[in-house]
Write a protein that binds this DNA or RNA. Structure first.
Ligand SMILES: [Mn+2]
Ligand SMILES: [Mn+2]
Ligand SMILES: [Zn+2]
Ligand SMILES: [Zn+2]
Lengths: 165, 165
DNA sequence: ATGGTAATTGAAAACGATTGTCAATTCTCG
DNA sequence: CGAGAATTGACAATCGTTTTCAATTACCAT
């Protein structure tokens, strides 16, 4: 049986670059404010999901968020996690990262845009910024008369560690 | 109920740019040769799928291929279509194009690499080549010590026609 | 051409991720 | 504190895709 997934060996969990595992700390009331700003009610579930997103590794699947939150809030249902992630993605508070047909991964939308470089062997994800590429993307869109709204740029390759077997 | 799909209104079928609907004509024996080169048996089903891929619009879903082929070969099953598309994708004879969580689309791998610019409003797909972007991608990967294997670059925006309402 | 054999097929069930349903619960605001 | 609307969790449903399996077919050696 062959792997179904085009970009990453089946069963591999993309790992995070160490330097980016932790995001900046947040003050306690921040999450409540975020939720209210979305026009939603502040619930324990939503607070727990936000805490999990901001404290844990970036690029988590809905299932991973569910499992994390479920550990401390055993009564939460995964529908709630999916629903809230979707709502946040709609408002661009979280960014969906999709690799081939794999389950979607989410990260709190960072202040600075970045794209992803993924190791097809071990799943490590490196974030990068490349303004020249961004500019060229604008140019391509304009050349075709398109008004660019967003883009997906994913680079796949073999990381240094995996190159050394 | 909101649309689930991040990049394209639900139910929209991406349209093709007129100038690219038809690929170059192929001589009759070509498909048989392609199949044998993959180390597979030549069957009517596989020939029909290849004909459909090369004659119809580019960027078709497995379901669309199935429906097309099924019209002239009513006995074909969709499992055969999925199986063969997957096998061809593994050998890079067809390229999988994924837009968000939508069903995968396939095109016979063109001799020249290109990426896609998609209208989020009407679904039109424009193919483009941008060597400077490709070079920068190589550079980014190398800067991180990665050996680049492939990439996914999808631009999304509003096409000229849709901008004019 | 024929037959043996492994590859391929179609139908249907299974699958994993995600979404919908709905009655019960919980925020919010007055 | 309530009333009322939003939210929840359990569960079923859906979607695209893959697997299973018995029946068929293409291929190769005779
Ligand atoms: Mn990221
Ligand atoms: Mn294309
Ligand atoms: Zn690696
Ligand atoms: Zn358009």
């Amino acid at each position: 049986m062959e792997t179904t997934v085009p970009h990453l060996a089946k069963g591999r969990t993309p790992l995070e670059p160490e330097k980016l595992i932790r995001r900046e700390p947040v003050d306690p009331g921040k999450f409540k404010r975020m939720i209210r700003q979305m026009g939603l009610k502040v619930t324990q579930q939503r607070l727990a999901i936000l805490e999990s997103l901001s404290a844990g590794r970036a690029h988590v699947t809905a299932q991973e968020v569910f499992e994390t939150v479920n550990a401390s809030h055993p009564e939460i249902g995964f529908a709630t996690v999916y629903r809230f992630l979707r709502k946040m993605a709609e408002q661009n508070l979280v960014t969906e990262v999709r690799m081939g047909g794999l389950p979607a991964r989410y990260e709190l939308t960072p202040r600075r845009h970045h794209d992803h470089l993924t190791c097809v062997s071990c799943g490590q994800i490196v974030e990068f910024e490349c303004p020249p590429i961004e500019n060229l993307q604008e140019k391509v869109a304009n050349d075709h008369g398109f008004q660019l709204t967003h883009h997906v740029l994913e680079l796949y390759g073999i990381c240094p560690r995996c190159q050394a077997e």
